[in-house]
Design a protein around this nucleic acid. Structure first.
Length: 520
RNA sequence: GGCGGAGUAGCUCAGUUGGUUAGAGCACGGGAAUCAUAAUCCCGGUGUCGGCAGUUCGAGUCUGCCCUCCGCUACCA
């Protein structure tokens, strides 16, 4: 069992054959935000991402590129490390399934499953699509223009008949259902859980877990003619990274089991096959599988053939990193599908960021800068409304924490933004610009309270927008060692007299380029 | 076909175990203010809560039927 103050979160490992797109960025971003939150909250966090580098498709792509598979994957896996860099991801490790330790781990889990009597040799035949890495039934196929048979996805299929090892998944149905029953939050959101439960209830078939038709993979222990089926290989990365098969190590014991973040398309692999593999191998199943939704682009489904794939690097270039991070986490209830549009993006940037939070910090800090000698003012006695306002900012961490615990990322942001709304109302109601002449002491108090709330906001916003939050906290004179959640509340309160730098805009407005050239 | 989810203000969505005049944000209209990134604040909705019927003193919230959309899954020609 993992320790209470440890938090292990994984992204799927990304298939190197893909070019990184918004879906990859979105999954890892959510994990990054959750991880940063936990670190600030005092947890020992391990965030894992990486690349899935085996399989027939990779083998063929390498061949087409005139490269050895290893050289090919070395090259393309770099794309995903570059993405992590641009997006500011804070992953603690980047695993690659071509690493030696992963082959050892995968073979070990195979052997453990085998010892448990859940593997047998049989043979598999059927129509197989290399592109989809899936078998199809005869009736699902259509005929293409050239007479070739096509999968529902449009991919070509070929008749494959080969010996294969099977995992006795059919015998795991009841145990899986019992596990879901005893762990109602194992699969989130609930709608995905329902799907999985009904899938398992409908009866499971044994799972083919090896191939002989290609070589680019991890050999089956004791039978080199076979390589391990790509999903068993891929899923095992989650325990490889914490040291499997050495389960007695500190690393394994404190981190495993993990929370797996996945796209809704791969829920079954994570919520059915994977726990079954693990239980068979005598390893604890994951803590949770959270499946998020997909993005559309300006209302349209995203597809390569439509040519409307969203490149996260371009988004960052156009809107800036933190606005993109904020938008992706705020715009859509996490778990639902959502639509990306330029208009919605600009609304979030100018509304939530520039107007609400950006302008709030600017108005508070510039009043302090101009009227309080550029230093944190000395507060006088607090009024009831001061106290209520301060308390709401100090306690919002409780609801934010509760939401983050169940991956309610958008609701966590809503709670923070409610404080921002309160803050703007507070400043308006107290009108420190009038107090400047009528009651300077009271002005000092109001600005102190405002700045103190702003400090809380800066701290809270860090997981979502690390760069912007840092700028804000810099302007409040907060050193790096006073920015974690233990400093929320009265204990970390601003020290009167602390000199503050000249304020500068943290969230600039997005101004549309109105030039004729931009109108295309 | 089966299972599941959804259908609430122009848009995106909240609405605990059925109970006072159904909410938020955005958008839109009016006003105030001028510390601030032309930012902020206040005020403004006669929404058939998909439709019909029912249970109830009372239903967005429960029951039945129907319509539409989505997801998972099965099968047949």
């Amino acid at each position: 069992m993992s320790r209470d103050n440890c938090y292990y979160l994984t992204t799927p490992i990304y298939y190197v054959n893909d070019v990184p797109h918004i879906g990859h960025a979105y999954t890892t971003l959510a994990c990054d935000v959750l991880s940063r939150f936990k670190r600030l909250d005092g947890f020992d966090v391990m965030l894992l991402t990486g690349t899935d580098e085996h399989g027939q498709k990779v083998e063929k792509s390498a061949q087409a590129a005139g490269l050895e598979p290893q050289d090919f994957v070395d090259k393309v896996s770099q794309n995903f490390r570059d993405l992590a860099d641009v997006m500011g991801f804070s992953n603690d490790d980047f695993i690659r399934t071509t690493e030696a330790k992963h082959a050892r781990s995968s073979q070990a889990i195979w052997q453990a499953i085998e010892r448990n009597g859940d593997i047998y040799l049989g043979s598999y035949s059927g129509w197989y699509s290399v592109r989809d890495e899936a078998f199809y039934g005869e009736e699902e196929l259509t005929e293409g223009d050239d007479g070739k048979r096509l999968a529902p996805s449009g991919a070509e299929v070929e008749w494959v008949e080969e010996p294969s090892y099977f995992f006795k998944l059919s015998e795991w149905g009841d145990r899986l259902l019992k596990f879901y029953e005893e762990n109602p939050d194992f699969i989130l959101p609930e709608t995905r859980r329902n799907e999985v439960v009904s899938f398992v209830k409908s009866g499971l078939r044994d799972l083919s877990i090896s191939r002989t038709s290609f070589k680019w993979g991890i050999p089956v222990p004791g039978d080199d003619a076979h390589i391990m089926y790509v999903w068993l290989d891929a899923l095992t990365n989650y325990i490889t990274a914490v040291g499997y098969p050495d389960t007695g190590t500190e690393k394994f014991e404190k981190y495993w089991p993990a929370i797996h973040m996945v796209g809704k398309d791969i829920v079954r692999f994570h919520a059915v096959y994977w726990p079954a593999f693990l239980m068979s191998a005598g390893v604890a199943p994951p803590k949770r599988v959270f499946a998020h939704g997909w993005w559309t682009n300006e209302g349209e489904k995203i597809s390569k053939s439509l040519g409307n794939v969203i490149d996260p690097l371009q988004l960052v270039e156009r809107y800036g990193l933190d606005p993109v991070r904020y938008f992706l986490m705020r715009e859509v209830p996490f778990g639902n599908d959502g639509d990306f549009s330029h208009r919605a993006m600009v609304n979030r940037i100018n509304g939530d960021l520039a107007n609400d939070l950006g302008n709030l910090s600017q108005r508070i800090l510039s009043m302090i800068n101009r009227n309080c000698g550029a230093a944190v003012p000395e507060p006088g006695p607090l009024t009831d409304s001061d106290r209520v306002f301060l308390e709401s900012a100090r306690s919002v961490i409780n609801s934010v924490r509760a939401e983050m615990e169940i991956q309610g990322i958008h609701r966590a942001l809503e709670a923070i933004w409610a404080v921002i709304g309160d803050a703007n109302r507070y400043v308006d109601a107290q009108a420190p610009w009038e107090l400047r002449k009528s009651d300077p002491d009271r002005m000092n108090t109001v600005l102190y309270v405002s700045a103190e709330v702003l400090r809380h906001l800066g701290i809270l916003v860090q997981p979502f927008m690390p760069g912007s939050a840092a700028k804000l906290l810099d302007q409040l004179g907060q050193s790096d060692d006073v920015r974690d959640f233990s400093k929320l509340g009265e204990g970390g309160a601003l020290t009167p007299g602390l000199a503050l730098p000249k304020p500068a805009a943290v969230f600039p407005r997005y101004v549309e380029d109105e030039s004729p050239a931009a109108a295309e």
